[in-house]
């Protein structure tokens, strides 16, 4: 008790508060939040990534590999182009999904007619756009990590999507996504690795 009333107390408290609040680098990054990550994504402009996708499916005796380019143009335009020999191109803009193949065939779908797809597209598009509100409309989010390394887990809320997708994990560094993994309810996994393209 004497200790508490001693004249050293203010100094001690000052030291304590310094230890707690003065900024060693690690401490700041611990407090990194999903909001901050989203803020960073919102600041970024148009960007392109090379991607490699590996599908490990129960039906197949070997994984399917596909690669191509993924381009995002804020606020809501996402293009997924496969490298040759495949020539499929998927483009989502607003609530329209356009699928085109090399043979000139083109199909436009309204995502409003396909609620599970509307929800699914949010998992990548809303993250790239930094649109937390939309993301949390369709998914329960779990965030861990810090500014250099982070992991965002998304659990679908939309019932139909939840029937097919157990969870989606997005791993990244700073404001780049490194890996985007879909864990399907049937056990299948689709792993997409992304590498930023610098022009």
């Amino acid at each position: 008790m004497r200790f508490l009333t001693s004249p050293h107390l203010p100094a001690l408290l000052a030291c304590l508060s310094l230890a707690l609040f003065s900024s060693p680098p690690s401490a700041e990054e611990d407090s990194w939040t999903l909001q901050q990550l989203m803020h960073q994504f919102r600041q970024a402009g148009e960007r392109s990534n090379r991607f490699t996708e590996t599908r490990q499916l129960a039906l197949l005796d070997q994984p399917i590999e596909q690669s191509g380019t993924l381009t995002f143009v804020p606020p809501d335009h996402l293009i997924r182009e496969l490298s040759p020999p495949s020539d499929s191109r998927y483009e989502i803009k607003g609530k329209r999904l356009t699928i085109s193949h090399g043979d000139g065939k083109q199909q436009t779908l309204l995502l409003d007619n396909l609620p599970h797809l509307l929800a699914f597209t949010a998992s990548l598009r809303s993250v790239l756009a930094g649109d937390l509100a939309t993301l949390q409309t369709y998914f329960t989010t779990r965030f861990s990590g810090n500014g250099t390394h982070w992991l965002l887990a998304l659990i679908p809320k939309q019932p139909q999507l939840a029937g097919q997708v157990a969870r989606i994990e997005i791993a990244g560094r700073h404001r780049n996504i490194d890996r985007y993994t879909v864990f399907e309810t049937g056990g299948d996994q689709i792993i997409t690795r992304l590498i930023p393209v610098r022009d």
């Binding site: 997924r80 797809l117 029937g163 097919q164 399907e184 049937g186």
Partner: peptide, 15 residues
């Protein structure tokens, strides 16, 4: 269909 980037409810019936 299995290569499509989107999940489909029919996948479960493929087999």
């Amino acid at each position: 269909e299995l290569k499509s980037p989107f999940p489909t409810p029919f996948k479960a019936l493929s087999a």
